[in-house]
């Protein structure tokens, strides 16, 4: 564990708490992509199967439980209490285009051709693109509530902090995880456009609005 990774995980945790807070305070899940949230459940469940057979640390154990539990809770809220505030008509990204290629790539690129390793690879690749339905929704509506942008910013910061973590690990432990690094760079790259608008508008006190 190093500071970059710890802060990254903290940002990830914070992003989820911000999202849950947004839903409860605005009594709405408007502007949130159900598809992205469902993909995150798939990501966490397929990656954390090792909860059953590998012990890493108490920290690792509880974080995994939190990510699985909170992502399921978000789906539950979106399908029950806040269902009327959800608009499937604008959440139209075709997730088959993500699930298909991720499955194929996971079958090709994995550290061992075993069910759990293939699922692990799949979860890494899927996480890297799981935000796309959300960004697509944002693009379609052209604007977002400020709290929603804070959620996305925290998620982006989480990914960005994993990059110095890998650099640090390379120099201190000699650890290189090519699958995680490649997917992580792609994932971080997807946030660049968002961050430009977030920094130039939201952090200056303006509303998040995309140029027409």
């Amino acid at each position: 564990m190093n500071l970059f990774r710890f802060l990254g995980d903290t940002a990830h945790l914070a992003s989820i708490l911000v999202l849950i807070h947004k839903m409860h305070t605005t009594k709405s899940c408007r502007g949130i992509s159900f598809k992205t949230q469902a993909l995150y459940v798939a990501v966490f469940v397929t990656r954390y199967l090792d909860l059953f057979y590998r012990w890493v640390s108490l920290y690792n154990f509880f974080m995994k439980l939190f990510f699985i539990g909170s992502s399921c809770y978000i789906l539950f809220l979106m399908k029950t209490k806040f269902r009327p505030t959800q608009d499937p008509a604008i959440d139209t990204f075709r997730i088959e285009y993500l699930l298909g290629p991720c499955t194929v790539i996971a079958l090709i690129f994995n550290y061992k051709f075993s069910p759990t390793e293939i699922l692990w690879s799949f979860s890494i690749f899927l996480e890297s693109v799981a935000i796309l339905p959300q960004l697509f929704l944002l693009q379609r509506t052209g604007e977002a509530e400020t709290i929603t942008t804070h959620y996305l910013a925290a998620l982006g910061i989480y990914r960005a902090l994993y990059i110095p973590n890998w650099i640090y690990r390379y120099f201190t432990e000699g650890v290189v995880d090519p699958i995680a690094i490649t997917a992580g760079l792609v994932q971080t790259g997807l946030y660049i456009d968002f961050f430009y608008v977030y920094v130039t508008k939201v952090l200056q006190g303006q509303k998040f609005e995309l140029p027409a």
Binding site: V56, V175, D177, P178, A180
Partner: peptide
């Protein structure tokens, strides 16, 4: 250690 042996990141 090889990455597949650890997977210690979240």
């Amino acid at each position: 250690p090889a990455a597949e042996e650890t997977h210690d990141e979240l």
